[in-house]
Design a protein around this nucleic acid. Structure first.
Lengths: 168, 168
DNA sequence: TTCGGCGATGTTATAAGATAACGCCATGAC
DNA sequence: GTCATGGCGTTATCTTATAACATCGCCGAA
């Protein structure tokens, strides 16, 4: 996903954007990152990653499972998907949205970032953001209280620009 | 929970603090708030609230269910607990921790706040914070992107002061 | 080449979290 | 007293996630 593939709306991709490009791009970067790290992006894991990238909406593990079963032509066990997702999350290729029990492709794998999301309750899209002010504010308050941060989670529910325009 | 019932450690209550006081206080404030609002804090709901306040650790609905069943001396249905929790969350007396699928008593019911938590992965305690900088940062970035916020969720996982001291 | 080891995957079963549909009953308004 | 409303009980079911164990296949060492 290059900068200009989501030209105008800001965080949440346009309806009309070239999503095939998003997918291809995500897979390419995953290949590169895993090669670099010596991590094994197996066929299964790669396919799960592709299915996570089906859209910019967070997807449940069982939705991915269904797709996978269909593609394979045979029933796949939940664990298969969960294991692949676990790997992808560890590698930073996928994020888990805690408030939705769902998974979404990472917009900037490789970069250090903390997993902040704007989640539209109307269209279901989720946009990853990485705002230094939020990160800093969390860091500051944690430091003030002697709390050692390992994993900050920020998930902001609300309504995206597009959906506000549609139902004013 | 008055200011001095958690004297020194900051966000996460001391091990030695007077927790009975926390519970009594929480129930009193719940009574007052519900009376003020004309909301019905029934015996069941009040008991669930009390069970949520068992400790400062977020508790799962099924843990509460077990306690409740034991108290009542008969099996209670999950729905009973979920309905009570739904009421309590609506009234702002209890928060749901999305990243844990668990519930915790609100430290400042009645006040406007957005549900920010420091969650210790070692001892399991969770401290509610309401930092204006975090709130402001979220508000700013949302405004910049035309995103209308309805429910911000901030859950910071990490290690609290006490647990850092114990395992340095 | 063969062997051994380790990580990935398959299989089966089950735990944990949450909700739907329906009906009864207590409470408060009139 | 009657009625409407909301709270609660019961049963069934759905979604999400993990445990335990077996097998497969790749890769390096002998």
């Amino acid at each position: 996903m290059t900068a200009d593939s989501h030209p105008t709306t800001g965080p949440i991709p346009n309806h009309g954007h070239d999503h095939a490009h998003c997918i291809a791009d995500a897979l390419m970067r995953a290949d590169a990152l895993c090669a670099e790290r010596g991590a094994r992006l197996t066929a299964l894991r790669r396919q799960v990653l592709e299915l996570v990238w089906t859209s910019h909406k967070p997807r449940g593990a069982y939705a991915i499972l269904e797709d996978l079963s269909q593609r394979e032509g045979k029933a796949t066990a939940p664990l298969t998907v969960y294991r692949a997702l676990e790997f992808l999350v560890e590698q930073g290729l996928v994020h888990r949205l805690e408030s939705l029990n769902a998974y979404i492709g990472c917009a900037a794998p490789g970069a250090v970032h903390s997993g902040q999301f704007l989640v539209c309750e109307t269209c279901g899209n989720a946009a990853e953001i990485d705002d230094p002010r939020i990160r800093a504010a969390i860091g500051t308050i944690a430091a003030e209280r002697g709390f050692q941060v390992s994993r900050p989670t920020v998930e902001v529910r609300g309504t995206c620009t597009d959906c506000q325009e549609k139902t004013p």
